[in-house]
Structure formats: structure tokens, C-alpha cells
Design a protein around this nucleic acid. Structure first.
Length: 278
DNA sequence: AATGAAACCTGACAGC
DNA sequence: TGCTGTCAGGTTTCAT
């Protein structure tokens, strides 16, 4: 479900609520495909350790785990929410939702719960070297909010795939998904199918600006709740009210009233205005 | 190397 | 009511 703004909202929310707490017990469900690291490794990394920090890297939520009374992390717990994953902080008396696959019980009794109906989510553990040997998880690509204009342009140099497909490629930029790819292309006035290598420098500069603006605004709105996205408290975002094209097939363009088109590109529903985007 | 299509799952919703 | 088909915030794998 979640893209950069939703993952950012969740990570910030979880961080505020559980930073500094100790994990006293861990439950991991029986679905093996969710665990990208061995189960015993994951239990060993989590159990009896403290949560130094929770943050977002790309679409991943990173838990920095430290020994008690120490600050430098020894391991990281990585959570990828896939399409339908949720990460909730709840009191123990609140009933476990269906499809709960992991529960971390904290020293104040509260629980961090990983819930994922479709099971496209993934959990993994990264061990950190003793003397800062490993920097830990740095993500799969460049960070869209901080990438410079020149680096952004260089990413797409000589690429012949449609621009939207490349926006979704997590080894180039990480964090952009279907909603924000469609929305940023609309705001930049670029058709999703355009070959990246045929975009002008000015268009690429416009796209970077549009992408950063739309991501920042979405974070400020707590993300987009299209079907079932909620933050760490189970609260919905409201950036879906600002969508110009995503899931608005046939509805009038907010700028020119032309009905929004839907095509399939890179296997994904793709929405654009045929008049505003050229 | 790069691109595209299919596969992995469940749930919600529209139409009959 | 219940069936079928479509669609959904993502990534990986396989074929070209």
C-alpha cells in the first residue's frame, strides 16, 4: 500500500511512540515468505534489545536496535509493507487484527504489530559491524527528496523505457510508487509513456521539482488513504483529496476539465490528462 | 544491460 | 444471496 509519504508518516509515528523502549518478547507468525532472514536470527536481534530509533529509508522502515544502556545500534530490523502491510502500536487489550504476522511486546506492555493481508510485505534483519564496519541499510536507490538536479538528470540519461516505468524503478529512485509517479508526471505536464531519453533537460528539472513538491505535500497531509492505509495509530491520511489523476479515470481534469485517461503501463494502472500532459 | 510481462496473495466492489 | 470479473499503495523472476 504505502509509498514514501505513507512510510515516512508511519516511521515518524512509530518512532515518536516507541523510541527508547525495550523489547521484552517477540511473536513471529508461521508464514515463511514474510521472513527474508532466518527466524532465529530475527528473534535474537529483537529480543531484549532497545529501539534506538525508527526511520524511513526508501519504502523501508528501519528499526535501529541497541543493547540496553548502550546507544550505538548492533542490528537493524527492516520492515517493508508491500501493498497492504500495516505497522501499528497498540495496547495489549486491543484485539489482534486478522493477518497479524509479527508482534513485539515492549517493556511498557504496548505492542508493535505487523499486519499484512496480502503478504507482499517483508521482514529482515541486518547485523552491524563492531566498529562501524557496516553503515547499515542505505536503501536501494537515490532519495527523491534530496537528490540534486544534476544527479536526477543523470539517472535517466539514455534510458529508453517510459518515464513512469523508471520512476517506479527502486534501484534508481527509492520511495516512488504508482500514486506519486502519476501525480508528479501530471504536475510536470509529461505523458507517462514518454521515453526518458527524449525528455528535455527542462522537462526533467520540472519533473524533479513536481515530484519533490508532491511528496512533501503528501507527507504534510499524513499520506494518501486510498483503500486501507493507516498510520501507527490507525488514523487515515488525507492526501487522496489532493489527487489530480490517480484513480480519477473519466473524471474531469482539475485544470482543464478533460476526462482523465487510464492505460496500463509497466503492469500498473496509469492515469493522465491528455490535454495537460504532452 | 534493459525492458516487459507474469506471478505472488487477499479483499473490496460492481454487475449479473 | 452468491457468483464472476476487475482492480488495488509492490517486488521478484523469467523471457525476450
Amino acid at each position: 500500500m504505502p509509498e514514501l509519504p505513507e512510510v515516512e508518516t508511519i516511521a515518524q509515528g512509530v518512532n515518536t511512540r516507541v523510541r527508547g523502549r525495550r523489547i521484552v518478547s517477540v511473536f513471529l507468525g508461521s508464514k515463511p515468505e514474510l521472513l527474508k532472514s532466518p527466524r532465529n536470527e530475527m528473534l535474537r536481534a529483537l529480543k531484549h534489545h532497545s529501539i534506538a530509533q525508527v526511520r524511513r529509508v526508501g519504502k523501508h522502515i528501519v528499526f535501529d536496535l541497541a543493547r540496553e544502556a548502550e546507544t550505538s545500534p548492533i542490528a537493524q530490523w527492516l520492515v517493508h509493507l508491500g501493498m497492504t502491510g500495516r505497522l501499528l502500536v497498540a495496547q495489549p487489550e486491543v484485539p489482534l487484527p486478522a493477518h497479524t504476522h509479527a508482534v513485539l511486546r515492549l517493556d511498557d506492555q504496548r505492542e508493535i504489530r505487523f499486519v499484512d493481508a496480502r503478504r507482499f510485505g517483508r521482514l529482515s534483519v541486518l547485523w552491524l559491524g563492531e566498529d562501524g564496519m557496516s553503515k547499515g541499510f542505505v536503501g536501494t536507490g537515490r532519495e527523491p527528496l534530496t537528490i540534486s538536479a544534476e544527479e536526477f538528470i543523470a539517472l535517466f540519461h539514455r534510458r529508453k523505457a517510459p518515464m513512469k516505468s523508471l520512476l517506479l524503478n527502486q534501484s534508481l529512485l527509492h520511495g516512488v510508487g504508482n500514486i506519486y509517479a502519476d501525480e508528479s508526471l501530471f504536475h510536470a505536464g509529461i505523458r507517462p509513456k514518454r521515453q526518458a531519453s527524449r525528455l528535455t533537460r527542462a522537462e526533467l528539472l520540472r519533473l524533479r521539482k513536481a515530484l519533490q513538491t508532491v511528496l512533501r505535500k503528501a507527507i504534510a497531509s499524513g499520506g494518501s488513504s486510498v483503500s486501507d492505509y493507516v498510520d501507527a495509530d490507525g488514523v487515515q491520511g488525507f492526501f487522496q483529496l489532493e489527487h489530480c489523476v490517480y484513480l480519477r479515470t473519466g473524471e474531469p481534469c482539475r485544470a482543464c476539465q478533460t476526462p482523465i485517461q487510464r492505460i496500463v503501463l509497466a503492469g500498473r494502472g496509469t492515469h493522465y490528462c491528455s490535454r495537460c500532459q504532452s
